[in-house]
Design a protein around this nucleic acid. Sequence first.
DNA 1: AAACATTACTTGTATATACAAGATAACTTT
DNA 2: AAAGTTATCTTGTATATACAAGTAATGTTT
Lengths: 238, 238
Amino acid sequence: MSKKEIIHLYKKVIEDLKFSIEKGDYKKGDLLPSENDLCKSYDTTRVTIRQALSSLANMGYITRRHGKGSIVSEPKTGLGILSVSGVTAGIGGQKLITTILDKPIKKDWPSNFFYHLDENAIKAGCIFFSRLRYINNIPVLYEETHITNIDLPRFSSRSLENRSLFKVLKEHYNIEVKEGEQKIWAILADKTISSLLNIKTTHPVVHMKRCLQTNVKGLNIYSSLYCNTEDHFLQDSF
Amino acid sequence: MSKKEIIHLYKKVIEDLKFSIEKGDYKKGDLLPSENDLCKSYDTTRVTIRQALSSLANMGYITRRHGKGSIVSEPKTGLGILSVSGVTAGIGGQKLITTILDKPIKKDWPSNFFYHLDENAIKAGCIFFSRLRYINNIPVLYEETHITNIDLPRFSSRSLENRSLFKVLKEHYNIEVKEGEQKIWAILADKTISSLLNIKTTHPVVHMKRCLQTNVKGLNIYSSLYCNTEDHFLQDSF
DNA sequence: AAACATTACTTGTATATACAAGATAACTTT
DNA sequence: AAAGTTATCTTGTATATACAAGTAATGTTT
């Protein structure tokens, strides 16, 4: 019954190093142990270690320098919403509070949904919820999320307040975002948005539509968000 | 004198496949030749082929499916400005015209420059130019660029109109963008921007600041751009 | 016809090894 | 003291191989 998850070595190396960096064992500019040192530590070969390091470089945790080593990158600040990791991970030390405006409910897709849906997705319907995020008690970001309605036991009852949607999906359902795309506009806040973000209707906001594909076939996450960038900004690294 | 550039096999595989995809030999949804087929074609081993394929997957050209193969991704449309490849590559089939407002000149960095500069960069000064980009004859995007002033022979005289800055840097100086970060705001157009983009001052625009690091130590590209997203949008894939 | 098993093909993970090439400090020569 | 050389560290590229695991079509049994 209990499916023994075999943990791949290169993934363990990734997790370990990521954890050490996030914990602060390695700080910005520090060198990670050399590939050969890591080989000894994990009793493996460079190919495996390099697979892990190249993945970390790709995720932005380190940059690699030929002849020098793996250098820990600057930790991301600002609203890291342009990255896959989501807002909760990106905001850094500031006080982030999330409120749920519409609790997750199963329903049909809206007519004229902003993304093309295939037959199976239409049949399945979706889970919808909306959240409003506060930074230092000021509403900054409003987000509407649609997820393809495949079987996610007890999803509706899980708390999405002050938690990353991505972490919930990963921890409880082993769902990971694999790829995605996003489109960005600058618009004036309409009545709804201006009242939610407590701004005037002449106030410009960033409007973003995202489609994220997961490792589960047919399970996509669509979100439409509005951000007041007066005191903050959206940030991305690559 | 003529430095014989050795072309690495995995890079050749990347270039070949990228070219084939862009040319249309492989279309969206098609499968690339299997790893073993590519091994035979290039007389190499899977490790090398996989290095190339994983790089292509990372660049968004393909997605890989365990047990299935390498699937060609949807070609990017829209203003692909959030990706490293730049605007000229991202706009696809539409008519894109670029005009140079300020030709590249060497000068000191502006006081209160938006990014932190180290001593060497300050000493070196910068090259500055600004461009206005039209899509279907409508001004859409204004961009100011600062590049660290290291020796780039004849750079000022090279045409940046209708050409990607990135392609010029790559072809003539072998300079490639390695990593970077960008920050995004929605703002109202000020007098300068509104007259450049031919819009009212109450019109919202996307404002973006980017810092791109290159493979040349100390050579960074800083750009500050403003985009009218009324008829277009900024797009990014990952 | 439906369910199951086999088979062949795909990508994923991993070991072991070799040499090339960039970075840096120590050493040697001038 | 300065310049050049060497040694040794680092990552980069590459070969050769093995088995695991996902996918899909085929064949077999029920």
